[in-house]
Amino acid sequence: CSVCSEPIMPEPGRDETVRVVALDKNFHMKCYKCEDCGKPLSIEADDNGCFPLDGHVLCRKCHTARA
């Protein structure tokens, strides 16, 4: 995971895991958050999703503030 540096592995008792890929980086679902404010990001293409800027994973509000 690009945030916590832990491997993305299935939880005990499970055969599969879910990971998020954004900007060629891999994330646990729980680690997929705005780099500035820490708001959890949605994997859907909506207002709560990722608004990347200069290689950073940001929420819409933080993207607008940086732009």
Rank of each mutant, 00 (worst) to 15 (best):
C1K: 04
C1M: 00
C1Y: 01
S2A: 06
S2H: 03
S2M: 02
V3F: 13
V3M: 09
V3A: 06
V3K: 10
V3I: 07
V3N: 08
C4D: 00
C4G: 00
C4N: 01
C4R: 00
C4K: 00
S5V: 01
S5C: 12
S5R: 12
E6S: 11
E6T: 07
P7N: 12
P7S: 14
P7K: 14
P7W: 03
I8W: 00
I8E: 04
M9D: 03
M9H: 08
M9G: 14
M9N: 15
P10D: 14
P10E: 15
P10V: 15
P10W: 10
P10S: 10
E11L: 08
E11I: 11
E11C: 05
E11F: 08
E11V: 12
P12E: 15
P12C: 15
P12H: 02
P12G: 15
G13Q: 05
G13R: 06
R14V: 09
D15E: 12
D15F: 05
E16S: 07
E16H: 02
T17D: 09
T17G: 15
T17S: 15
V18Q: 15
V18T: 15
R19T: 09
R19I: 02
V20W: 06
V20L: 15
V20T: 03
V20K: 08
V20D: 03
V20S: 05
V21C: 14
V21K: 15
V21T: 14
A22F: 07
L23I: 03
L23V: 14
L23D: 09
L23F: 05
D24G: 10
D24T: 04
D24R: 06
D24H: 10
D24K: 11
K25N: 03
K25Q: 05
K25E: 03
K25M: 11
K25P: 00
N26M: 12
F27Y: 10
F27L: 10
F27M: 12
F27C: 03
H28F: 00
H28A: 00
H28Q: 00
H28M: 00
M29I: 14
M29T: 13
M29W: 08
K30L: 06
K30C: 07
K30E: 14
K30S: 11
C31D: 04
C31W: 01
C31P: 01
C31Q: 00
Y32W: 07
Y32P: 01
Y32Q: 02
K33Y: 02
K33S: 06
K33R: 08
C34M: 04
C34N: 04
C34L: 01
C34T: 01
C34D: 02
C34W: 00
E35Y: 11
C37Q: 01
C37W: 00
C37P: 00
C37I: 01
C37R: 01
G38H: 07
G38E: 14
G38L: 07
G38Y: 13
G38C: 12
G38F: 08
K39N: 10
K39V: 10
K39M: 10
P40E: 12
P40R: 10
P40G: 14
P40Y: 12
P40H: 07
L41C: 02
L41K: 04
L41V: 03
L41R: 03
L41P: 11
S42Y: 01
S42M: 07
S42E: 11
S42R: 06
I43G: 10
I43F: 06
I43A: 13
I43C: 14
I43P: 15
I43W: 04
E44L: 04
E44F: 02
E44K: 14
E44V: 05
E44H: 15
E44G: 08
E44D: 07
E44T: 06
E44W: 01
E44A: 07
A45W: 04
A45R: 13
A45I: 11
A45C: 13
D46Y: 05
D47A: 09
D47W: 04
D47F: 05
D47K: 09
D47R: 10
D47G: 13
N48W: 04
N48T: 13
N48H: 11
N48C: 05
G49T: 11
G49Y: 05
C50G: 12
C50F: 06
C50E: 04
C50L: 05
C50P: 11
C50T: 06
F51W: 12
F51K: 13
F51L: 09
F51I: 08
F51R: 09
F51V: 09
F51Y: 14
P52K: 09
P52T: 13
P52W: 07
P52Q: 13
P52R: 08
L53T: 08
L53V: 14
L53G: 05
D54C: 05
D54F: 05
G55A: 08
G55N: 07
G55E: 10
H56V: 06
H56R: 13
V57R: 07
V57G: 03
V57T: 08
V57Y: 10
L58V: 07
L58E: 02
L58Q: 03
L58I: 05
L58W: 03
C59H: 02
C59N: 01
C59Y: 00
C59R: 00
R60V: 13
R60D: 05
K61S: 11
K61F: 09
K61I: 13
K61V: 10
C62F: 00
C62N: 00
C62M: 00
C62L: 00
H63D: 04
H63Q: 15
H63N: 14
H63E: 07
H63V: 05
T64K: 11
T64R: 11
T64W: 07
A65P: 08
A65N: 11
R66T: 13
R66W: 08
R66M: 13
R66Y: 07
R66I: 04
R66E: 03
R66F: 06
A67S: 13
A67N: 13
